[in-house]
């Protein structure tokens, strides 16, 4: 009977020894998955930002007249902006400029120009595009964030989030690209037009940038 007990202990010891490389191999699987996800995210971001909207069925939106009474063909064609030729990077930059939110002394003033139609359409466009390109393999969260002006009491910022995290389990990676915003800081300052803002000493920082990050999540 004693020898059986010894044998069971021996078997247990060997099982533990065998399970160590198996656990290591599980770690390897995670490392490889994360590496692939990071490479996929990086290439997706770079490829997306360089590809024109016409590759994904085109992008257009109505500006100025957005109420239903103006939805007659003549006015619609007149007010519709077709931006098929623009790359996703250019669309994001334009959306950021048209939808900058002003915050003064912690109270949000809202977008300083009316570009909400573009913002809504761009979110839908990006969601459909990413669902098609990434959604089959990973959960995702795309975030475009810009803080072109930030001084005491006044902040101009832009934040766009498009995500599909259902059913996502764990974050695999996050890749970020920086785009320069095609507007000089003094132009943004002048557009604010407030004497208190205009009188403030703007910090001499580099060109405003948009930070575009893509997170991938395992499904």
């Amino acid at each position: 009977m004693e020898s059986t007990v010894d044998l069971i202990i021996f078997a247990l010891l060997i099982s533990v020894a065998v399970s160590i490389p198996l656990a290591l191999s599980h770690d390897n699987a995670e490392i490889i998955t994360e590496r692939y996800a990071a490479s996929f995210a990086r290439n997706t971001l770079v490829a997306l930002l360089n590809t024109p909207a016409e590759q994904f069925g085109g992008f257009s939106y109505r500006f100025f007249f957005n109420s239903p009474e103006f939805r007659v063909p003549f006015i619609e064609s007149f007010t519709r902006r077709k931006l098929d030729h623009k790359t996703i990077a250019q669309l994001l930059a334009e959306d950021a400029l048209l939808n900058l939110r002003l915050t003064i002394d912690n109270s949000k003033i809202g977008p300083i120009w009316s570009g909400q139609e573009m913002d809504e359409k761009l979110r839908i466009f990006l969601k459909s595009l990413l669902d098609n390109l990434v959604g089959g393999r990973f959960g995702y969260r795309l975030r475009a964030k810009a803080t072109p002006v930030e001084v005491p009491f006044v902040c101009l910022d832009f934040d766009l989030v498009v995500e599909n995290l259902y059913p996502a389990r764990a974050k695999l990676c996050s890749e970020t690209l920086l785009l320069s915003l095609p507007a000089a800081e003094n132009e943004l300052t002048a557009l604010l037009g407030s004497p208190s803002v205009a009188g403030s000493p703007w910090p001499p920082v580099a060109d405003p940038i948009i930070e575009i990050s893509l997170e991938l999540w395992s499904r």
């Binding site: 692939y36 490479s39 996929f40 290439n43 997706t44 770079v46 490829a47 997306l48 360089n50 590809t51 024109p52 590759q55 994904f56 790359t87 390109l133």
Partner: peptide
Amino acid sequence: SVSLPLALLDENGSVRL
């Protein structure tokens, strides 16, 4: 096998995903 997205530049200068 591995697949990755790519922005391909055509001979005529247009870009395809």
